[in-house]
Computed example of a mutant assay.
Amino acid sequence: MEPQVRVHQTVESVADLASEWQVLHDDAGDVNPFSGPDWAVTWLEHFADDRRAPFVLSVRYGDRLVGVLPLYRQSAARVIDVLQPVGTGSPWIGPYELPAMTADPARGRAVARAVVAELCARPDDWDWSSVIFGSAAPWLEPEWLPNWEFTVVPRRTIATVTLDLAGGHDIYSGRRNLKESFRRARNRLTRDLGTDGWSTRRVLDEDEIGAAFDRLVRLHGSRADVQDGRPVHANVLADDRVQRYLREVVTRMSRRGAVSVYELLIADEVVAGQLMLHTSTATYSSVSGATDAAWPYSAITYLQSLAVADAQQAGHRQLCLSAGPNQAKLRWTDRVDLTPEFGIIGPRRRSRMLSVAATARGTVTSFVAARRAHRAEVMERRK
Rank of each mutant, 00 (worst) to 15 (best):
P340M: 08
C120W: 04
V68E: 09
S135Y: 07
G346Y: 05
D38Y: 11
A282H: 07
R107T: 03
R78W: 11
Q9C: 10
P33A: 08
M253L: 15
I93H: 01
A137F: 04
R109L: 06
F367L: 11
Q243I: 00
G167W: 05
D38G: 00
D228Y: 06
V7H: 01
R78L: 12
S58P: 11
E118G: 03
A185P: 06
D81H: 13
Y96E: 00
R201N: 11
I171F: 11
E149C: 08
A358K: 11
D214R: 12
L98I: 03
S305P: 07
G343F: 02
S19Q: 15
V364H: 14
R361P: 00
R247H: 13
R175N: 09
V5W: 10
S260Q: 05
Q274C: 04
V259R: 01
Q4F: 03
D124L: 12
V232D: 03
N177H: 06
L44H: 11
Y302K: 05
W139G: 04
D214T: 12
R350E: 08
V364F: 13
E20V: 12
F55N: 01
R247Q: 14
H374Q: 14
G167C: 05
W39T: 03
N326D: 15
P105C: 05
G36A: 08
D225H: 12
S254P: 10
A323R: 15
A159R: 14
P3T: 01
P231L: 11
L189Q: 05
S222K: 05
L338Q: 14
V7A: 07
S285Q: 06
R60C: 13
G36C: 12
V66Y: 01
A369Y: 06
D38A: 12
K383N: 13
F367D: 13
N177K: 14
A185F: 09
E269L: 09
A77H: 10
P95W: 03
R372F: 02
A376G: 09
W21S: 09
R188C: 02
I300L: 15
R255A: 07
S254I: 07
H25T: 07
S90C: 04
A290H: 07
D240V: 12
E149T: 14
R382H: 14
V270C: 15
A103R: 08
H233F: 08
T279W: 06
D164T: 11
E149H: 14
R252S: 13
A373Y: 10
G346Q: 04
V356D: 08
V287K: 00
V56W: 03
L65K: 02
A117G: 13
R218M: 05
P347F: 12
A357K: 07
D170K: 11
E45V: 00
S280P: 02
G343E: 15
Q22T: 04
N326G: 15
